[in-house]
Design a protein around this nucleic acid. Structure first.
Length: 203
DNA sequence: GTAACGATTGGCT
DNA sequence: GCCAATCGTTACT
C-alpha cells in the first residue's frame, strides 16, 4: 500500500533526506490533468554560507526566500533565461535547504507529459533532467512557494530503491562542484537518471 | 549603470 | 563533442 507522506518526512538534513526520498512520488494536478513522477535523482543544497553551490549561500534574497520557509514547500526558480527547476524545501523554517528534483520516471499522466515535452524522443527522456522534470510536471515560476502537501500537489511514498548512489553535483562551478560535496543522489541503473555533466567552465 | 553568468536543453557536426 | 538560445540575478565599474 502506498503511504501519503507528511511534513515530518521532509524535516531534517537535506543531505540525509536525499537518499531516503528517492523513489518518492510527486503529483501535480492542473485543469489539464494529473502527472505523477517517481523521483530517481535528487541533489541537496543547503546554504547558510556553508554550501558554495547553493542559491542561499549569500543569504536570503527575493528569489530564494522559499528555501528559508516552511519545509515541504516548493522552491521553483528560473535559470538560463528559459528553464524552471523545482526543489523540495527541507529543514526547519529559517534554515535554507532543499532537494533539487533532477530526474524521475513519469508513472501517471504519460500522455499529458508527452504533450508538455514534445522534444522528448523516448518516454525515459520526459523527466530526465531538472528543467525537463519541471516541464513534464507542469511547474511554473508562480508555483514557487507552493505547499507540496496541499492541492494541487501531493507526495506519496513509492517503492524504495534497493540501492542508492552518491556523487558530486551536476553543473556546479567553483568550490561547490567538487567531490567535497557529494550531494547528488540517484538510483543506480535507472534509465531516467540524467547523465553527469560537469560545469562547462570547470576544465 | 553595465557586463557576465547560470543548480540547462536541444539541435547540429 | 560543440554551441546558441534567452533573461533574471549577481558582480563588477
Amino acid at each position: 500500500m502506498e503511504r501519503r507522506l507528511t511534513r515530518t518526512d521532509l524535516l531534517g538534513s537535506a543531505v540525509d533526506l536525499g537518499p531516503l526520498l528517492l523513489g518518492t512520488l510527486i503529483s501535480h494536478t492542473t485543469d489539464e490533468g494529473t502527472v505523477t513522477i517517481r523521483l530517481t535523482e535528487l541533489e541537496a543544497y543547503i546554504g547558510n554560507g556553508v554550501d558554495p553551490g547553493s542559491h542561499a549561500y549569500r543569504g536570503k534574497t527575493k528569489r530564494n526566500s522559499s528555501m528559508f520557509g516552511e519545509p515541504g514547500h516548493l522552491y521553483a526558480y528560473f535559470t538560463y533565461g528559459m528553464h524552471v527547476c523545482g526543489n523540495m524545501v527541507c529543514s526547519p523554517e529559517g534554515e535554507p535547504a532543499g532537494l533539487l528534483m533532477r530526474a524521475g520516471e513519469v508513472v501517471e499522466g504519460l500522455e499529458l507529459a508527452r504533450l508538455r515535452r514534445p522534444a522528448a524522443k523516448k518516454d525515459r527522456d520526459l523527466a530526465r533532467g531538472p528543467g525537463r522534470l519541471a516541464t513534464a510536471l507542469g511547474l511554473r515560476l508562480d508555483d514557487d512557494g507552493s505547499d507540496l502537501f496541499a492541492a494541487p500537489f501531493a507526495l506519496t511514498a513509492g517503492t524504495r530503491p534497493t540501492d542508492v548512489m552518491a556523487g558530486p553535483r551536476t553543473g556546479i562551478s567553483g568550490a561547490g562542484g567538487g567531490a567535497q560535496f557529494p550531494w547528488r543522489f540517484w538510483i543506480p541503473g535507472d534509465p531516467t537518471v540524467s547523465p553527469y555533466k560537469r560545469h562547462p567552465k570547470s576544465h
